[in-house]
């Protein structure tokens, strides 16, 4: 497994798209702290990057890489290597590269310029999102054989989690505005990893706006330790569930 991961990491490290993405993230991470002298605002800007750009790139790139290296995987599968090892190797290689880029471009500046609770929450949420979206990307690519369709589907998944879900949530809230919907909404946010990560970070930063009558419900939940643990746990579930499903499919698939 480690050998496969090592090969994949070495391969990715030379990939032009990865280099471009790395440079983009480095400019974001270091540039925002250079421009913004208020670290809390910088954290919020980085939150946008983590919730918007990073899931998109992770999804598209991981999916694309899987499709492009299908022949390589076929070759390896012909060797006496277990499918399990092969799949774990691919997943580990991809997530290692993304995590490294994330840590270098956003992790280091946050730890240097704003080593606060909110900064650490941001890093934790961002790191977990990488695993979530790598797993989802593999799930999509393993299931959809056609590259174009697979990529289209990945885009759809991304836009669902990034926009559509929240739009539906807003619609739901408008429809049921007369009812005490705080708790149902709280439950519904757990069905979207981006929402979990967002609220987890915000509950550590801008508590003031979340206060108020219904904000108190969220604040009590996410601000407390058990809420933080629940959020992290749910993100882990969101990473492991697609991973397990993709793994199941990959092991049985006719490559």
């Amino acid at each position: 497994m480690f050998n496969i991961s090592k090969i994949i990491v070495q391969d990715l490290w030379k990939n032009k798209a990865v280099i471009a993405y790395g440079i983009l993230m480095l400019t974001f991470g270091w540039g925002i702290f250079a421009i913004e002298y208020q670290s809390e605002k910088a954290i919020l800007s980085l939150l946008r990057v983590i919730l918007f750009v990073q899931p998109l790139i992770t999804l598209l790139f991981a999916g694309m890489y899987y499709y492009n290296s299908q022949e390589f995987l076929l070759l390896l599968a012909a060797q006496p290597i277990k499918r399990k090892t092969l799949f774990l190797g691919v997943f580990a290689g991809l997530s290692t590269v993304f995590t490294l880029i994330f840590l270098l471009s956003i992790g280091v500046p946050v730890l240097v310029f704003s080593p606060t609770v909110e900064g650490l929450a941001l890093l934790l949420a961002g790191g977990l999102l990488i695993f979530v979206f790598t797993a989802i990307a593999l799930l999509v690519s393993v299931h959809v054989n056609d590259k174009a369709r697979g990529m289209g589907f990945a885009l759809l998944v991304w836009s669902f989690f990034a926009f559509i879900y929240d739009g539906l949530l807003l619609l739901f809230m408008y429809q049921f505005a007369e009812y005490p919907i705080e708790r149902p909404v709280l439950g519904l946010t757990f069905l979207n990893p981006i929402d979990i990560a967002r609220i987890f970070v915000i509950s550590k930063t801008e508590a003031s706006a979340l206060l108020g009558l219904s904000g108190a419900v969220f604040q009590n939940f996410f601000g407390a330790l058990q809420g933080a643990i629940a959020a992290i746990f749910m993100l882990l579930v969101w990473a492991s569930l697609p991973f397990a499903l993709a793994y199941r499919k990959f092991v049985r698939k006719d490559l």
Partner: peptide, 14 residues
């Protein structure tokens, strides 16, 4: 109008 919508603070859709 809907206090529960504070949940969507900094959401992309917003």
């Amino acid at each position: 109008e809907i206090p529960a919508a504070t949940m969507l603070l900094h959401s992309n859709i917003i």
